[in-house]
Amino acid sequence: MMALLGRDLALALRSGGGFGLSLAFFLIVVVFVPFGVGPDTEVLARIAPGVLWIAALLSCLLSLDRIFQLDWEDGSLDALVMAPLPLEGVVAMKALAHWLTTGLPLTVIAPLLGVLLDLPGPAAPWVFLSLLVGTPALSLLGAFGAALTVGIRRGGLLLSLLVMPLYIPTLIFGALTASRAGEGLDFLTPFALLGGVTLLAAALIPFAAAAALRINLR
């Protein structure tokens, strides 16, 4: 399993594209927001936590189809299914690799990009922490969507349509944590619920995604 994780990380880092691409996309979305809503810092400060969350979520969507698609095309996914590893574990490792190459870098640069949006000081650590806790759920749910659509040619759009509604609880609790922290309100409740959603996804999704993969590779 660790070998699989190492392989996926190496592939993501060396094959170009995936890793830097979602970070660049994140940057562009954040830069576009002031063009759209105007450079008024008060407005920007108010919407900054939500914008950062939405931008992170969209950048995460971008690279989802890579989770299984390449392995499906060159046949190594068949080998992984045959391998003496539980498929649920394979899915979990794939999601973890996706998170390490997408969710984690996004989390790290989010507070930095927050400066561009005049993110209020007290919100910055909570943007970081809520993304840290919430993005694993995005990767897991994305792995489920990728497993559902792995057999479909040009399934990227369908993948987004399937995964977006599943992202809603994570987005609500994550953005709520960050924006409440900025306004000095109670943010521990949504933060705890955000953690709950992530744990639920970690417990449930590997099984659902593995089932979808087995159906697709039948």
Partner: peptide, 23 residues
């Protein structure tokens, strides 16, 4: 596949309902 989606979707639809209530 749609059956699996219906099951997972149900869980997250209910979650979204309560998330929206808090939101």
């Amino acid at each position: 596949l749609t059956s699996v989606l219906a099951i997972v979707g149900s869980v997250f639809a209910v979650l979204s309902r309560y998330a929206a209530l808090i939101w």
